[in-house]
Write a protein that binds this DNA or RNA. Structure first.
Lengths: 335, 335
DNA sequence: CTGAAAGCGCTTACAG
DNA sequence: CTGAAAGCGCTTACAG
């Protein structure tokens, strides 16, 4: 039955190295006092036997797993794969590993989330995804810290590392006004999000302070196909906006596609557009979209730092970290 | 220091339920014989105390972790996020969880992969990414089964669930010939892959049997920006191909962008194109790309089944599972 | 069906 | 600096 090769243990290494099992254990714990000779003998034996300390046994005594639960994006949003790599690597660098928590489980929703907690994750990273309240409450019950990455879920109270959406909104308004736009609109999807609200707030406040106007707030869908009709309706109006700040690049691209192919509009002559995210498609030949680039690298580093800090210090102070965002100009803004 | 709430254990539950700790343990193991009354008392107590069996303690005795290492894609390829969800859910359904293995670690490459093995993953799923040989060898040393998902790495011997690339190649050739194409080309990136080879083989063999011709094999880069020059060079030729089968949709789109904007070519009148993957962008208004859709849902299910089968049965027979692929026609093929 | 007890592979006071 | 021993929270023969 169990043909599985019997794993080598610290005792095996101890025997070969001629030391006690305790000593072997100490060699693999940073900061333990072990003589240089003992250390060498143990390393040699460990290498010969291909020994790896058993993390499960360790966590049983230390009561920490060095495992972080990762709630990850629900959508195919192109930027997210890289983000996951960044987070995973950053955790790894700090001696932690990421366990995936599927955010949505069709059937046995009740059943599956707790499963993850059988692994006693030390913390949870909610990576730019909606995460359900069951998970949130579970974490609170077990006093497991959560950090939200790149977005903030309504009604939750946890630390977060997000882009400075408010400033992005201000910059977008200022830039568009500078380039001669007269009727500004904010184009967004249908999923309420704190980041979105902030962006609109910055956009609105800056526009008001500059011109006294209030931008139009147009809501449609985040899915390309589903956004099309909403956009059509707006562009069909006699006095449609001449400048759009879009909450995702995909939305901006849907807008460009329709504006050009169905309304014969030129960009940026007839309408100007600014996106958000800088997905790979933003720089495709047919788009050359001016958009905000989020600093995911920094975001990942900071989010991990935030989380591990809470994990290690038991300090549950809430911090909301805002990372600056950069407007990369391509060809959808007038000069 | 350790303010961490002391987790509740099986003994706590046993005390409250008025049974032995063994009985509590049995209640949470499927197939153990426990009386209905005992079971109920334990469930009640467990619920009241919010008890979760400790997976680490379990795996220490059972010698299985119910953890699967997941090597995941290096690229921003849009299709992959969904794939990850599918794999993760499928594992979860079977009582397993996925731990991420960052495929590439800049500095301490040697050091980090073994770290993962401190968690004694029961198996490894290599999800459409290149995975390095260090990991491969590590798995072999520890007798940990690997299944490759959606691609096959050169020089490795493990089971895999992939799309039927060979047939896709044949279908592409047949379709293109049927639609009047005369000079067929296969456009691909610069990373050698078994799946790619198979696709070209099917494409070539079918074309030869149909017309006696051999398709041109054009290699450029998988990255949009880097592919542009190679594509330009081909289209600048006097007698460039009039039909392209592209190994990714991104490549197909780069081709379309250049053909139309720089060479004034119409699609599908002047050139016909077929992509591979059916990424969301393939159905954007400006592209309407005819392309092959991989059945990722089925692929994920089968790959997980394959892997867990190896994990649970110690059966290390190599199986290469091929899932049919579907050509979805849009507007880049003549009628 | 059930309980007492050994054991999984570590860490960590406790002595020395 | 080092070893013997207890203990982490489970599972699993072994008796009953």
């Amino acid at each position: 039955m169990s043909v599985k090769k019997q794993p080598v243990t610290a005792s095996d290494v101890a025997r070969l190295a001629g030391v006690s099992q305790s000593t072997v254990s100490r060699v693999f714990i940073d900061g333990s006092s072990v003589s240089a000779t003992a250390r060498e003998k143990v390393f040699a034996a460990a290498k010969e036997l291909n020994y790896r300390p058993n993390a499960f046994a360790r966590s049983l005594t230390t009561n920490e797993s060095r495992l972080i639960g990762l709630v990850f994006p629900d959508s195919d949003y192109p930027i997210h794969m890289e983000t996951l790599q960044l987070l995973s690597k950053e955790l790894q660098k700090n001696g932690y590993s990421a366990v995936l928590i599927p955010w949505e489980l069709d059937d046995q929703q009740q059943h599956s989330i707790p499963n993850i907690f059988q692994y006693r994750v030390d913390g949870v990273m909610a990576a730019s995804a909606q995460f359900n309240t069951a998970l949130y409450e579970e974490c609170r019950d077990f006093n497991i810290p959560i950090v939200q990455f790149a977005r903030i879920e309504e009604g939750t109270k946890c630390s977060s590392a997000i882009s400075d959406n408010y400033s992005a909104g201000k910059i977008a308004a200022r830039t568009l006004v500078q380039r001669g736009a007269e009727q500004l609109a904010y184009l967004t999807g249908n999923i309420p999000a704190y980041t979105n609200t902030e962006r609109l707030e910055g956009f609105t406040e800056e526009l008001q302070s500059l011109t006294g106007q209030t931008p139009r707030d147009i809501q449609t869908s985040y899915v390309y196909e589903e956004a099309l009709d909403g956009i059509r309706a707006v562009l069909a109006e006699d006095h449609h906006p001449d400048a759009f700040f879009c909450s995702t690049d995909t939305l901006a691209i849907a807008l460009m596609d329709i504006a050009r192919s169905e309304f014969g509009l030129s960009i940026p002559e007839d309408i100007q557009v600014i996106g958000f995210d800088d997905i790979p498609q933003a720089s495709w030949l047919g788009y050359q979209l001016s958009t905000f680039k989020q600093d995911f690298n920094r975001l990942a580093k900071e989010a991990v730092k935030l989380l591990l800090n809470q994990v290690q210090s038991e300090d549950r102070a809430l911090v909301k970290l805002m990372i600056p965002v950069e407007l990369v100009e391509r060809n959808t803004l007038r000069k």
